[in-house]
Amino acid sequence: MTLHNRLRLLPWTGPDGKPCYLSTDDEDSHLSRLADSTEALQLDLAAQLLDYVADVLGSDELGLQELSALAADLTEALRGTLRVAESRGHRLLTPVPEARANVTKGPTLSAAAFG
């Protein structure tokens, strides 16, 4: 098996807001572990924020400023979560073309079957 994409989208951006990528074959390198830890932290914070929002939205105590700040926090958490999903999706293992030729074919559906 080979990696779909050797470049890993990192869970942070550069100073100019552009994406940062890591090129390595070592998934246990210092920078890879730092990215893994940062992704885990982003996902944990998003989950905590979601729990908080579920509790807070049930109350009538939120003013416009609090709702605006909450929307900004949710936007940032969603941005981080989507970045983690994109990065992990790019790192999924896919079979190399030669390996695909040896796979026993089962029933197939056309792309139209999926809408």
Rank of each mutant, 00 (worst) to 15 (best):
T108I: 01
D44M: 07
A111H: 09
P11W: 06
C20H: 06
E66K: 11
R6L: 14
A46L: 10
N102A: 08
L49E: 01
E27D: 04
T108R: 06
T13H: 06
A35N: 03
D55P: 05
L43E: 11
D60N: 10
H4A: 08
L7K: 13
L34P: 05
E76V: 14
P15G: 08
L74H: 03
R6Y: 05
T94V: 15
D25W: 03
T13L: 03
G89Q: 10
P107K: 03
S87V: 00
L64D: 13
A46P: 08
E66S: 13
D73K: 15
D36R: 12
V84T: 14
L3M: 06
L49S: 10
D44E: 13
T13P: 04
L22A: 00
K18P: 01
R33L: 13
R79Q: 11
S32E: 10
L50W: 09
P11T: 09
H4L: 07
Q42I: 09
L3F: 06
G89V: 14
D25N: 04
G89R: 15
G106Y: 05
V56G: 11
L82S: 08
S23L: 14
S110T: 08
A113Y: 12
G58T: 14
R88E: 03
L49K: 05
A71V: 05
L43R: 00
V84F: 09
Q48A: 12
D36V: 02
D51S: 15
A54V: 07
N5T: 06
V96T: 15
N5L: 11
L109I: 05
L49R: 08
E76G: 14
R8G: 07
R88H: 02
D55F: 12
A101D: 15
R33F: 01
A101K: 12
T75D: 08
R88D: 07
P15L: 15
P107A: 05
D44A: 12
E76P: 00
L41H: 07
D26K: 13
D55E: 15
D36W: 05
A112Y: 00
A69P: 00
G80D: 10
R88G: 02
F114K: 02
K105V: 02
Q42M: 11
G14A: 05
D25P: 00
A77H: 01
R91V: 00
D25L: 10
